[in-house]
């Protein structure tokens, strides 16, 4: 039996560490133009069926967040990578 991988449950701790931080402080790279900015610097459109965050450099969509009853959807395809500042484990 192969032991070169685990299932996704093994990532729970690492993902929880990321997704409980203040995401607006994370730094993202725009998939369209490569501009690097914090999520807080995104150009945000809120008068819409969801939240739309756009690149401050090229206006491309970075993220879409839709909140429904009991559910939410986060589309981050406009961001190639997010960088988080995290304290080192003590």
């Amino acid at each position: 039996m192969s032991t070169d991988h685990l299932d996704g449950n093994a990532a729970a701790g690492a993902l929880r560490e990321i997704f409980t931080t203040d995401l607006t402080a994370a730094t993202g790279t725009c998939a369209s133009c490569g501009n690097v900015a914090t999520v807080a610097q995104a150009v945000l459109y809120t008068n819409a069926p969801g939240l739309v965050g756009r690149c401050p450099g090229c206006e491309a969509v970075l993220f879409r967040l839709v909140r429904g009853p009991g559910r939410a959807w986060l589309d981050l395809r406009g961001v190639t990578c997010l960088e988080f500042a995290l304290p080192d484990p003590s």
Binding site: P49, R64, L65, V66, A72, W73, D75
Partner: peptide
């Protein structure tokens, strides 16, 4: 489309 890929 735009919203249909994001929950709508």
């Amino acid at each position: 489309g735009f919203w249909e890929t994001a929950g709508y």
